[in-house]
């Protein structure tokens, strides 16, 4: 039963994508509307700061650590057995 629901959703990825991008817009718009508490640091005062931080933070994590893995850390799985 559960599997069919997921299957049904998978056939409609366009709608899901639409929801996702709508949510992105909502997240930013929501930040314009809310009341802000006393800031902990300058980032708290900028509207949409956490969107930028989330996006670039995510890209940085992927690029830096995937990169580190590729050039240095990754080894065959039986590295220690040899």
């Amino acid at each position: 039963m559960m599997a069919q629901v997921i299957e049904w959703l998978r056939e409609r990825t366009k709608i899901l994508k639409g929801f996702f991008f709508a949510f992105l817009v909502f997240a930013v718009v929501f930040d314009f509307l809310i009341e802000r508490p006393e800031p902990h640091f300058w980032g708290d005062e900028i509207i949409g700061f956490w969107s930028i931080y989330g996006f670039f933070g995510c890209l940085t994590l992927i690029v830096v650590f995937k990169g580190l893995s590729h050039v240095w850390l990754q080894k065959e799985e039986d590295y220690y057995d040899r």
């Binding site: 996702f20 929501f30 802000r36 508490p37 949409g48 969107s51 995510c58």
Partner: peptide, 22 residues
């Protein structure tokens, strides 16, 4: 609180976007 919700929404939505692109 509204601010905590907003912070969370933004962080996750845009992390999702990052994953989607990468």
């Amino acid at each position: 609180t509204a601010y905590h919700l907003s912070e969370t929404f933004q962080l996750f939505a845009f992390t999702g976007l990052g994953f989607y692109l990468m």
